[in-house]
């Protein structure tokens, strides 16, 4: 029990640090559908970001093939063709790699609930547990900011693309897990530096802004 408490305490200390001193894992996944119970993870991509730098060398990308997967009605999901799956990764080892990177890091996603639920469900059969320091959702961050600044929030205005546009970030047109993870990392940097934070804002308070 003592180690658990110590662990908890360390995490709290870590969260008190300024947000720029954390390690972030920007993550995105593509699924065969939106139903956690029946749909599957098709691909995931992530990379490491230490504000203000994103390291392309840290990028990971994995595709998964599923025997039972018929790719639904369409042969193309998220731009993935059946042929792409020939280079597929092992689901278990990919999830283990992600879990170890998330240790002590902050998970960063655009619309995090979906990704987080899929991840946990996929990991469960292997007994893998993800223990990120905190979760940050760039969509939620943007929603709260716009609400606070009393913007009218139109349909579609919270998409990754639309949010990036508001910060003058370049258009990325590929819908690819890694590309979206990268887009999300850049968006978070713009959000955090412009609105979320001063020099000494703690990670905790930033994470609260964007928590569900």
């Amino acid at each position: 029990m003592f180690t658990a408490v110590e662990h908890w305490w360390q995490r709290q200390q870590q969260l008190q640090k300024p947000w720029q001193q954390q390690r972030y894992i920007a993550f995105d996944a593509e699924m065969s559908g939106l139903e956690v119970k029946q749909d599957q993870l098709l691909s995931m991509g992530w990379l490491t970001m230490r504000p203000p730098v994103i390291d392309y060398g840290s990028a990971h990308y994995h595709l998964f093939s599923h025997a039972e997967l018929d790719l639904k009605q369409s042969p193309v999901v998220h731009g993935l063709l059946s042929a792409d799956f020939e280079n597929s990764s092992d689901l278990r080892s990919s999830l283990e790699a992600l879990a170890s990177e998330l240790e002590g890091a902050i998970l960063l996603c655009h619309n995090i609930t979906l990704d987080w639920n899929f991840l946990r469900r996929a990991a469960k059969p292997f007994g893998i547990r993800f223990k990120p320091l905190a979760l940050i959702d760039t969509l939620r961050f943007e929603y709260r900011r716009m609400q606070r600044q009393q913007h009218h929030i139109e349909r579609g205005s919270l998409s990754l693309q639309a949010c990036r546009k508001r910060y003058g970030l370049p258009d990325y047109n590929s819908h690819h897990a890694l590309s979206d993870a990268l887009a999300c990392a850049e968006l978070f940097l713009a959000q955090a530096y412009r609105y979320g934070a001063t020099e000494h804002t703690t990670t905790r308070s930033l994470a609260q802004v964007s928590r569900r």
Binding site: P51, P52, V53, I54, D55, Y56, G57, A59, E186, L189, A190, Y193, R194, E199
Partner: peptide, 22 residues
């Protein structure tokens, strides 16, 4: 080349680090 790139978000707070650290 792309796989060895780094991207930095530059603003008034981070600009100092560009030439210092990279």
């Amino acid at each position: 080349c792309v796989q060895q790139l780094k991207a930095i978000y530059l603003n008034e707070q981070t600009v100092e680090t560009l030439f210092k650290q990279h």
